[in-house]
């Protein structure tokens, strides 16, 4: 209750400081990125795998939704299709994990990111290629969701659902098995856990969530091009999870807030700086980098991570 109220007050302060549309638009993107972060957090934090290509699943979700929306499909058909295809891609991406481990497997996920981006460029007849794809606004029950308020409400509602699902998974037998695989694969196998299948399951669920984030992203941005789903996005999502704290689901929320909203806050501050300083190229990137380093130094296990754990890791 207290946490909810604090969030509400923070939100109100943001609205008062930034203006409603600006704050709501940010919250829509924060919630969307948090959904993708939750997915990656299952893979990285729970199952202990590294996915360097998570942006690709978001891209698949976004393009499938975008193309189906252009073709006139209603969202209650197109969105599940987009999520399912992204999840299927996640399953494919997890297959090399049956034979490869550690860095070698991580490299194979990197390849997925490259393949998807290239595929989106080359498959021009369908995706529109490098020229991009304009996506119509989201339409739910005859209502067009194009304003920041609607976007924020839809994103937040889906984030709550996704968070609840993740919590359930993590607390269940599956979650315990994931953590067993993460801590010691040989020991997990010895007690009868099918490590390969569990890893695949993490990828399917994680990629599905990324696909869901992609569905929202496609509508909020209204224009898709392959370069948006390149390696940079994958690394951004990975950064999001580690900054927030991979071991806890709440880490995805914190991470998303930092990745999406922090650059905006910095830009507000640089506006207040004298013109000579504020307008210098790269000032905002520099400030962002410094703050990230600071966060990692102070909270090595991520913002949501435990301090005790941090101390142990540092020691």
């Amino acid at each position: 209750m207290k946490a909810l109220l604090t969030a509400a007050v923070l939100g109100m302060v943001a609205v008062a400081l930034l203006g409603a549309d600006y704050a709501l638009s940010q919250s829509a993107f924060v919630a969307t990125w948090a959904i993708a972060g939750l997915g990656l957090s299952l893979i990285v934090g729970q199952a202990g795998q590294i996915s360097l290509g998570h942006g690709a699943f978001l891209g698949i979700g976004a393009y499938v939704e975008g193309l189906l929306a252009v073709a006139g499909w209603p969202p209650w058909v197109s969105a599940p299709a987009a999520v399912a295809l992204a999840a299927a891609a996640g399953w494919v991406a997890s297959l090399p994990g049956r034979r490869l481990g550690g860095m070698a497997f991580a490299m194979s996920t990197l390849a997925i990111a490259l393949l998807v981006e290239e595929g989106l460029v080359r498959w021009e007849s369908v995706t529109g290629g490098a020229a991009g794809l304009a996506v119509p606004s989201l339409r739910i029950a005859g209502q067009v969701i194009s304003g920041p308020l609607g976007q924020s409400l839809v994103s937040t509602a889906l984030l709550i659902v996704a968070y609840a699902c993740c919590r359930r998974w993590v607390a269940s037998r599956i979650g315990r098995a994931w953590r067993a695989v993460r801590e010691d694969e040989a020991a997990a196998a010895a007690v009868g856990i099918d490590c390969g299948a569990l890893r695949s399951l993490a990828f399917v669920l994680g990629a599905g969530l990324a696909g869901l984030a992609g569905v929202l992203y496609a509508h909020w941005l209204a224009y898709l091009s392959p370069e948006q789903f390149g390696l940079q996005l994958s690394f951004e999502l990975l950064m999001l999870v580690f900054i927030g704290g991979a071991a806890r689901l709440a880490g995805a929320l914190w991470g998303a807030a930092v990745i999406v909203a922090l650059p905006q806050l910095i830009s507000l501050f640089t506006d207040a700086l004298p013109a000579r300083w504020g307008s210098a190229s790269g000032v905002e990137t520099l400030a962002f980098g410094l703050l990230i380093v600071l966060i990692i130094l102070l909270r090595p296990a991520g913002i949501a991570g435990e301090r005790r754990q941090a101390g142990r890791e540092a020691g």
């Binding site: 930034l18 203006g19 600006y22 638009s25 993107f29 991009g132 941005l221 224009y223 999406v260 905006q264």
Partner: peptide, 29 residues
């Protein structure tokens, strides 16, 4: 994504009259 947020800020907080010379196709679109 950053550009969309920047646009909201410029429209609402800064209340600008017009947008001039925005750079890059994904950003512009």
């Amino acid at each position: 994504k950053k550009a969309v947020l920047a646009t909201r800020k410029l429209l609402q907080r800064d209340g600008v009259f017009a947008f001039l010379g925005d750079l890059g196709t994904p950003v512009v679109m």
